[in-house]
Amino acid sequence: MKARVHITLRPSILDPQGNAIEGALTGLGFEGVSGVRQGKVIELELTETDEAAARSKVEDMCKKLLANPVMENYEIELVG
């Protein structure tokens, strides 16, 4: 089973990289863009076939390494 983890900065955390991207988009003439936030995606291949067990395993990985709860939120997506 494949899992995809989406890691985003918590809304309360300033994102200077997102702000810079937003500035660049505006500079390129894209109008009406706001709230740009940069995050990351981590893909994992798991031998686990049970969906609930896989989700709980990835959840544990997020807590222990993949995300830093001080500044990040995460969402787990299981892909077939």
């Binding site: 990289q17 001080v70 500044m71």
Partner: peptide, 17 residues
């Protein structure tokens, strides 16, 4: 130290990038 939890908070990208 912040990543291990021995100290609170986190060190983010510099505001000026």
């Amino acid at each position: 130290l912040t990543e291990t939890g021995l100290l609170p908070g986190a060190l983010m990208r510099n505001a000026g990038l």
